[in-house]
Structures are given as C-alpha cells and as structure tokens.
Design a protein around this nucleic acid. Structure first.
Lengths: 218, 218
DNA sequence: CGCCATTTCAAACGTTCGTTTGAGTGCAAA
DNA sequence: TTTGCACTCAAACGAACGTTTGAAATGGCG
C-alpha cells in the first residue's frame, strides 16, 4: 500500500458514501459496493463487521470534523460577543451552523455525504446510527441554543425551537440535491455558487427567525 | 366483501403506506407487508403488478386530492385579489400551499403518507415514481409561481425560486416526523397543534421570503 | 343449478442478499 | 529462515427476496 493507494478501508468508505447517497442504504448491496470499490466482498465484514457498522463509519468520518468546526465557530462568536459586551449576531450563528455543511459538500465525495446526510436525517435505517447521530449533534444543539437565545432575546424558547427546526429543514432540503431546485426553476439556469447559496440561506432563515411571534403563540 | 371490509386492494394500500413510511421502501418486504395486511402474498402482484407500482399507487391516492385542493386554493386567492384590484397575500398563498399537507397528516393514515412523502421527496426509489411526482407537482408550481411573483413584486424571480425552495424544505422537514423537533426541544413539551404549526410555518417562511435581497444577488 | 370471470391461495421459481469460512498471500520482527 | 500477524481471496452458507403458477374458492347472473 503506497501513500497514493487509499487502502481498502478508505476505498470502501469512499464508495459506500457515494452509493448509499445515490441508491439508499437498503438498496445498495455489498456485492455492488465491493465490486465498485475494487475490493473483495468479504472486506467489508472484515474491516467493519457488518453493513450497518459501515454506514455508521461513513457518517462518523464526515460528521466528527464537521461538528467540531461548528462548535469552534460558535465558541469564537460567543467570545467576540462577550468581549464586546453585546449579543452574538444571528447571521453569524446561522453561518457557523450552515457553512461546514456546505463546505463539506464541496470536498471530493462530500457532496455524496451531504445527500446521504439529508436522507438519513429522516430515515431510521439503523438503530446504532440513530444513537451515533444524536450523540454527535447533542453538543452542537446544547452550544448553539443558548447563543441563539441571546441573539434573539425577545423570542420565547419554544418559538426558537420551532424556527430552528424550520431552518434545519431548509438546510437539509438544500443539501439533498440541486435537482429539485432546477425543476422549480423550470430549466432557468440557477447559480449554485457556495457563498451565494450560503448568503441566501442565512438571509432567509435569519429573517424567518426574527419574525415577530404571532400573538396566539406568545 | 361488506361495506365495513375495506377490500384487499385498499387494505394493501393502507398497510403499504404505513410500512413504507416507517421502514422505507426497499427495507419493506412484500411478505411482511401482506402478512400485516392479512392478505395473501400474491395479492400485491395481482392487484398492482409490481412492488414499485404499488408505491406509485400509494402516492397517487393521496397526492391527487391534495394538489387539487392546492390549485383550487390558489385560484380562489387570485380571484379575490383580482376582484379587489390588489396583489394576493403572501401569507394566504403559503397557507394554501402548506395547509393541505398538514391536513393530510391529520387524516387516518395520512401521517404515514406525510412521512413517506418527505422521504421519497429526496429518494429516487423508482423511476416511474419520479415521473408521476413531477407530473403531479408541475401544475402546482406553474400556478403558484406567478401568484408569488405578484405578491412579492420587488423580488427577482431567481431569488423567489431559491426562497420557495427553502420554504419547501421547512415544510418537508416539519412533515417528516416530530421526533427531531422533540429532540431539539430536549424533552421540553412542544405544542404540535395543526393550526399553530401552520401559523408558525407560514410566519417563518413569509418573513424569510420578504427579506430584502442582498445587494450581491440583486 | 351451472357457467364464467374475478379473486384468493399455497407452493414453488430463480435470484440475490449479508455473512462466514478456511486457505492463501505478503511482510515485518525474531 | 522461520514465526506470526494483518489482510485478501474464492467459495459457499442459509435466509429472504420479488415474482410466477395453477388450482381452489367466491359470487353474481342466465
């Protein structure tokens, strides 16, 4: 195994992330996967144990650095805000939450993982996956929620939860694929530049989160 | 088959919609499906042809009346606006777009279909499904887009497309299940009343769509 | 009743699945 | 050179899959 050779394990992870994203977890057979990866069929079970454990490994490889960047971003924004004696900026927090996801989508293979991410975000393919997922995101949630509460001091917490829920939905739907967007545009060319997408997403969600709460819900 | 007996075909549709939503299409076997429905294994192939055709039938049963209600709603709003000589209300249009989905989720079995709907919205399980899907939604898109353009006359069309995309994401994520919301709330009880959810969703998306476009994108 | 079309049924079809096995390979340390 | 270990490989395992088949029910109609 030379430095250029990614190695069997990495090769499996790369192909798995692509095929799982394209066809879904249950619809992707280990035979097709290992054939596409150019490795032996038994290699998956040797290196990862089971197919389900492979799915968990695919996610962990991407999610760990992604959420670390998010946490570091929130911390930096909070330090800045504390130093200046003011609340953190809503746009800054949303940017910190969204940017690592869009940046991951720009890495080689990351676009597949972003799609897969959006998929599994609403599937319960594996129970082991669900627990890993929740563990990964708990830290982000617990760190960003107080920050958002400070950025939006007039918003009741349960309203903020709903709106963050909506914002995550907008992010997930954006990550899923650009096919729906293209369809929505009826063939009209759309710019899918990362910074522009991020700016639009942040702008949309920031405005939505700042909307005055209806008096029935206040 | 008495009037109380839903009949084999309906029974299959009901159970399929539930199981597909809970476990996914590929992960649901026809054996488990027919056993849960209390019908013979061969009944699916007899009544629907293939498993894939069953999935299409599951969707068509729900989507047709849903999109008819949407179209009628947009037409009514446009007639009102034309009669009064003003633009249609953005909140009204979003309500018309979202309400039939939330109402379907309130019907028996409709919650499953809403989940399934959100799932397949980002899966490409079947090619026949994709074409049925697009055909169903083309009419809605082509009818509501000009209405939204009139409600937001200052917004460039490509900006509107992006923002509608985000709004659909928020809707889809809301429909998927309340589990993620509960997790976000860290166990704090959340009201999931339909009208309140609708009001929040409409308010969030209306504010997001009305946000001034950043000068880079104008 | 007897006829016919529709529907149900148990059984089997061939295929593909995830996983296991045991022999074989290459390589670094002893 | 020999031992040990990490890894790869072809082959096979039993189970489960979607689908097909042909016979048995079912029920309305002359």
């Amino acid at each position: 195994m030379t430095p250029l050779d990614p190695g069997t394990k990495t090769q499996i992870l790369d192909v798995a992330e692509r095929l799982f994203a394209e066809q879904g977890f249950a619809a992707t057979s280990l035979r097709a996967l290992t054939a596409a990866a150019g490795v032996n069929l038994a290699a998956v079970n040797y290196h990862f144990g089971t197919k389900e454990a492979l799915l968990v490994a695919v996610f962990e490889r991407r999610l760990r650095p992604l959420n670390e960047r998010r946490l570091a971003g929130v911390d930096a924004l909070m330090r800045e805000a504390d130093a200046a004696g003011r609340a953190p900026s809503l746009e800054g927090l949303l940017d910190t939450l969204f940017r690592p996801v869009l940046e991951m989508a720009g890495e080689p293979g990351g676009d597949s993982c972003a799609k897969l991410f959006a998929r599994v975000h609403l599937e319960t393919e594996a129970e082991a996956l669900e627990s890993m997922f929740l563990a990964q995101f708990c830290a982000v949630r617990d760190r960003i929620m107080p920050a958002l509460l400070r950025a939006l001091p007039d918003l009741p917490e349960h309203e903020l939860i709903w709106r963050l829920h909506f914002a995550i939905g907008a992010l997930a739907h954006t990550m899923q694929s650009t096919i729906r967007l293209q369809w929505l545009a009826r063939g009209k060319a759309m710019t899918t530049d990362r910074e522009a997408t991020l700016r639009r997403l942040v702008g949309f969600c920031a405005a939505g989160m700042r909307a005055p709460a209806s008096k029935e819900d206040r």
